[in-house]
Design a protein around this nucleic acid. Structure first.
Length: 666
RNA sequence: GGGCGAGUAGCUCAAUUGGAUAGAGCAACGGCCUUCUAAGCCGUAGGUUACAGGUUCGAUCCCUGUCUCGCCUACCA
């Protein structure tokens, strides 16, 4: 109904402009007045007209107000129009009417269907434990998935696994050559780690790999020049063997990366994050995706063979905005196939993205890999099961990848466009975000040596190679321990299991909200002090508001649904019209869907987080000001209960979109 | 050198994409628990939106220039 009112208003203004001044306006700007008391909509249109009509904005506004009153009489749902400020037109609506439709709103308003959207997120190299940076990625991605699904889209979730890359190779080198383990010993280690379970943090396989990866990276830099040369060549031989597949080194790599991958899935599952499909680089290589893509790229002329300059002997492609008409070789061109015939990462990525849009003419094999309570996660394989869901052929894609990769991402889009797939290129979104770094203080707390230069910086970049960073499970453990301490103190009458569950829900709420409240372009300078905060603009603050709302109904004797039903049949026109503190909550419910659309439009989940927080603030305000259960006036009590009910409903919905649950108690 | 992003209160961040008095949270100070839970609420203080011009009814936002910081820019992935 909110939408309909906006539309009616827009049309009325257009009509008036047309008939009175013969003016057609492109986009009619509609805003919200700075104060609730000023109304629901604000139109700055008079400012724009001032020049055309050659009159003061305020006069135009006054004139428009007169005409709007005639055009939109009270029975249309509009209550008042007035000229305000230097020439704004403020519009009030009949609050009770809008509130009534909101009270009766059913949760599933969006129809299923629409284009198939593919979201790729997480994509952690399977050679070490996940860290805070990966958490930002996965939480942003998972939230994007949730809000896309909330608007009725069919969404497939993919987690790309680079299981044949240099990072995996490094850990393989570490086990085989630095530690001198046999493949059998590595298998035994993986098995014993799995037997210990994920609770034995430091003995987890991904934690062992974390430490080993740092050691190997250092090992490459140490020793005599001759040793370094040997170690480097060991590294590239290993990488090459892994890429080839089938040989023993490749099998070892596969076992290591698969073991780490399983742990990543468990870590993310703690946060309520799941996947549908895990495409792996090994299949992209061995199913000859690249060969097909290479042929298509050559055919379309996107790739050309460089015969002079520094890239002689390579297949290269012009960068977006690059290239020149001169005879000179384009030194800035992106190398896709090296002079030794091997393909670069961007090349493989182009092949993968052709597959995503169903443009490659080849498909993965699929087999089941991981079971969630409500669905199966599939993984790519050479020979798969005959029955499997369809994961490619998307109409639109979102790649949740940090901002440092915007260059290669742009190359992939460029390739698609030049190959003639403009439609696909237009529906390719690099959902970019800045990294999570550590504050110098946080780094010092973790026991890392912070150099003189770093100490004055705002943040220090994490580095897997240096083993420098905060591991995801360690952070979750810390958060859970902190929330459990509080929960134990606050909820002594509840069982240990109940308290643990509540503490975990709050910990997840804190973490997920923390990662979402920053806009994507903001580097998060991570600090335990901020992340472990449960007051103010945090997830627990919002959860607490919802828990309070629910407590009211626990003691009131009626359910939120009954409260809303009772409200919808009562005449409460006056009560709501003059109560801005209650109306704030109803209006926020009304603006939820437009907000969600804006969130998707701008691909900025921070908008959602903020909206949710503001609603929680408004509810806490309301909660403090009105004592509901002791209210003696029956009608007033109904109004208050219904307001609490709609707040609870909205908070629950918004939190759910962010992957945050409302605990039983706090 | 080139490309992208950022610079807003002591700190961390917002600002409906050009609108009304630039807002929140921390931190500081002062209040509020016999109430549906104080993980809460109220109040005070805190600003030349990096700097200089420009565009217009109107600029934190757009344009130009300058300064500072970060990232990217390899036949690494």
């Amino acid at each position: 109904m909110y939408r309909e009112l906006q539309q009616q208003l827009t049309e009325a203004v257009r009509k008036i402009l047309k008939t009175s001044w013969e003016i057609e306006i492109g986009e009619l700007v509609m805003e919200q007045p700075p104060e609730l008391s000023m109304g629901e909509f604000a139109l700055p249109v008079a400012f724009e007209l001032a020049r055309k009509v050659r009159k003061a904005p305020r006069l135009i506004a006054t004139e428009l107000v007169e005409k709007l009153r005639a055009e939109l009489p009270p029975e249309t749902g509009f209550a008042a129009f007035e000229a305000a400020g230097a020439g704004y037109i403020n519009v009030r609506i009949e609050r009770a009417r809008l509130a009534r439709t909101l009270a009766l709103e059913t949760p599933s308003r969006h129809k299923a269907g629409g284009p198939h959207i593919l979201v790729e997120h997480t994509s952690i190299n399977p050679n070490k434990a996940a860290h805070v940076g990966h958490l930002r990625n996965a939480i942003l991605g998972d939230t994007l998935v949730r809000i896309l699904r909330a608007t009725g889209h069919r969404v497939g979730v993919q987690n790309y696994i680079d299981n044949t890359g240099v990072q995996v190779a490094d850990v393989v080198v570490g086990f085989l050559h630095l530690e001198g383990k046999s493949p059998q010993e590595i298998d035994a280690l993986i098995e014993s780690c799995e037997a210990l379970g994920v609770q034995a943090r430091e003995e987890r396989f991904d934690y062992i790999c974390w430490r080993l990866y740092a050691r190997v990276s250092q090992w490459y830099e140490e020793g005599t020049e001759e040793q370094q040369r040997l170690r480097k060549s060991l590294r590239y031989e290993t990488l090459h063997a892994i890429e080839m597949g089938e040989v023993e080194t490749a099998l070892v790599a596969d076992r290591i990366s698969t073991a780490v991958l399983r742990l990543h899935l468990l870590t993310m599952q703690r946060l309520g994050i799941t996947y549908d499909f895990l495409p792996r680089e090994s299949e992209i290589l061995h199913l000859k995706f690249w060969d097909r893509a290479f042929a298509l790229l050559k055919e379309s002329g996107v790739l050309y063979y460089e015969t002079s300059g520094k890239n002689t002997g390579c297949w290269v492609m012009t960068r977006p905005g690059g290239g020149s008409a001169t005879e000179e070789p384009d030194e800035d061109a992106k190398v896709i196939v090296r002079s030794n015939g091997t393909v670069t990462y961007v090349g493989k990525d182009i092949a993968y993205h052709l597959w995503k849009f169903g443009l490659l003419g080849a498909d993965f094999g699929y087999r089941k890999f991981f079971e969630y309570p409500d669905h199966t996660c599939w993984i790519s394989s050479m020979t798969g099961e005959s029955e499997h869901p369809n994961f490619g052929g998307a109409g639109a894609i979102y790649n949740v990848i940090d901002a440092r990769q915007s260059d290669p991402q742009a190359n992939v889009v460029q390739a698609l466009r030049e190959m003639g797939h403009a439609e696909s290129a237009d529906h390719y979104t690099h959902f970019s975000y800045e990294m999570v770094a550590l504050t110098p203080r946080c780094a010092a707390e973790l026991g890392y040596h912070v150099g003189e230069e770093d100490r004055s910086r705002a943040y220090i970049e994490v580095s897997g190679r240096k083993g420098f960073g905060v591991k995801a499970d360690d952070l979750l453990d810390k958060l859970t321990a902190a929330t459990l301490k509080e929960t134990d103190a606050r909820q002594p009458e509840r069982s240990g299991a109940e308290r643990t569950k509540i503490a975990e829900q709050i910990a997840i709420g804190a973490l997920r909200y923390f990662m979402l409240k920053f806009t994507r372009s903001s580097v998060i300078a991570f600090d335990f002090k901020d992340a472990l905060s449960f007051e103010g603009e945090t997830g627990p603050y919002v959860q607490y508001a919802a828990v309070r709302a629910r407590n009211i109904f626990r003691k009131s004797g009626i359910s939120p649904e009954q409260a809303l039903d009772a409200f919808s049949t009562m005449d409460l026109v006056q009560a709501l019209q003059s109560a801005d503190d209650l109306w704030a909550i109803w209006l926020r419910a009304a603006r939820r869907d437009p907000m969600l659309e804006a969130t998707i439009q701008s691909a900025e989940p921070a908008t959602l987080a903020r909206y949710c927080f503001q609603l929680a603030q408004e509810f806490n305000n309301f909660y403090h000001k009105h004592h509901i259960l002791t209210e003696e006036n029956e009608a007033r009590r109904t109004l208050l209960l219904a307001t609490a009910a709609v707040a609870l409903r909205e908070l629950t919905t918004l939190l759910q979109w962010m992957g945050i649950e409302v605990p039983e108690a706090m």
